[in-house]
Computed example of a mutant assay.
Amino acid sequence: MSRIGKLPINVPTTVDVTNNDSILKVKGKFGSLERTIPEIIGVEQTDGKLIVSLKNETRANRALHGLYRTLINNMLIGVSEQFLITLILQGVGYRASVQGKTLVLNLGFSHPVNIDMPDGITVEVVQNTTINIKACDKEQLGLFAAKVRSWRPPEPYKGKGILYKGEQILRKAGKSGKK
């Protein structure tokens, strides 16, 4: 049995959970999410807790047990608190701004980079070089942050690029001159 999968999930009082026909729907103050649950996994709700169980024990099913318990937990946290990723632009002239539903980045190219924001994701720019991205779906949030970061990943020689908050770049020495 999965050690993570057998842990109960606490359901916040502000969140509504409905489970019918292998579709789990979670609704909270920041939005609503739904996920299809495989037939081999059972989800039951008892007095403020969700318990994820397996219907038959095989090696692959045990792996899914822990995975789906974590996915359901992330759904509950997302609709009640939201997830946040902070990106930092490092480089001369690197800037960000939000125009409607578009994130506009100046990253040293001859043109600005326009990235459309998906539904459910909010972007806030602080001090032109710090981007706060919030969403209730952790998977979509990570994908959007990776898409933004892919325009200028950090490089090891000067340390320029788009970094996650708290990320350390291992710096390399440049070319050494003739001796």
Rank of each mutant, 00 (worst) to 15 (best):
residue 21 D to A: 14
residue 123 V to S: 03
residue 67 L to F: 13
residue 6 K to V: 09
residue 28 G to L: 13
residue 12 P to E: 07
residue 170 L to I: 07
residue 46 T to M: 09
residue 45 Q to I: 09
residue 64 L to H: 04
residue 111 H to C: 06
residue 134 K to G: 08
residue 77 I to G: 03
residue 134 K to V: 04
residue 105 L to H: 00
residue 34 E to P: 09
residue 72 I to A: 04
residue 61 N to C: 11
residue 59 R to L: 12
residue 120 G to K: 04
residue 91 G to K: 14
residue 111 H to S: 13
residue 68 Y to F: 15
residue 127 Q to N: 15
residue 58 T to V: 11
residue 2 S to A: 10
residue 55 K to R: 15
residue 53 S to C: 09
residue 144 F to S: 00
residue 91 G to W: 08
residue 71 L to I: 11
residue 165 K to D: 03
residue 58 T to P: 06
residue 25 K to I: 10
residue 82 Q to N: 10
residue 37 I to A: 06
residue 68 Y to W: 12
residue 101 K to Q: 13
residue 77 I to W: 07
residue 124 E to K: 12
residue 152 R to H: 04
residue 77 I to V: 15
residue 107 L to G: 05
residue 128 N to H: 12
residue 121 I to Y: 04
residue 48 G to P: 04
residue 132 N to Q: 12
residue 7 L to V: 09
residue 96 A to R: 01
residue 82 Q to Y: 02
residue 145 A to V: 03
residue 39 E to M: 14
residue 60 A to Q: 14
residue 36 T to Y: 14
residue 22 S to V: 04
residue 24 L to M: 08
residue 170 L to K: 05
residue 154 P to V: 02
residue 22 S to W: 07
residue 175 K to F: 10
residue 173 A to Q: 11
residue 50 L to K: 06
residue 39 E to F: 15
residue 129 T to A: 04
residue 169 I to R: 06
residue 164 Y to V: 02
residue 51 I to R: 13
residue 168 Q to L: 05
residue 1 M to A: 07
residue 102 T to L: 06
residue 11 V to L: 09
residue 21 D to F: 12
residue 78 G to E: 03
residue 24 L to R: 06
residue 172 K to V: 06
residue 94 Y to Q: 13
residue 150 S to C: 02
residue 104 V to C: 08
residue 17 V to D: 02
residue 14 T to P: 03
residue 46 T to F: 10
residue 162 I to F: 01
residue 91 G to Q: 07
residue 48 G to W: 08
residue 35 R to F: 06
residue 34 E to F: 11
residue 23 I to C: 10
residue 108 G to S: 05
residue 73 N to Q: 13
residue 80 S to H: 07
residue 151 W to Y: 08
residue 127 Q to R: 15
residue 42 G to S: 12
residue 108 G to Y: 06
residue 165 K to I: 01
residue 31 G to T: 07
residue 46 T to N: 13
residue 82 Q to K: 10
residue 112 P to D: 03
residue 28 G to T: 14
residue 14 T to D: 15
residue 126 V to C: 06
residue 118 P to H: 08
residue 141 L to P: 04
residue 115 I to D: 08
residue 71 L to M: 11
residue 133 I to S: 04
residue 9 I to T: 03
residue 113 V to H: 01
residue 87 L to T: 04
residue 138 K to H: 12
residue 109 F to Y: 14
residue 154 P to M: 05
residue 11 V to T: 11
residue 176 S to R: 12
residue 75 M to H: 08
residue 76 L to E: 05
residue 145 A to L: 03
residue 47 D to L: 10
residue 116 D to A: 05
residue 126 V to N: 10
residue 44 E to S: 15
residue 16 D to V: 14
residue 79 V to S: 00
residue 163 L to P: 02
residue 46 T to C: 07
residue 44 E to W: 10
residue 164 Y to H: 02
residue 72 I to D: 00
residue 149 R to H: 00
residue 115 I to G: 09
residue 29 K to A: 09
residue 21 D to E: 15
residue 114 N to G: 01
residue 86 T to L: 01
residue 106 N to Q: 13
residue 139 E to D: 05
residue 1 M to V: 10
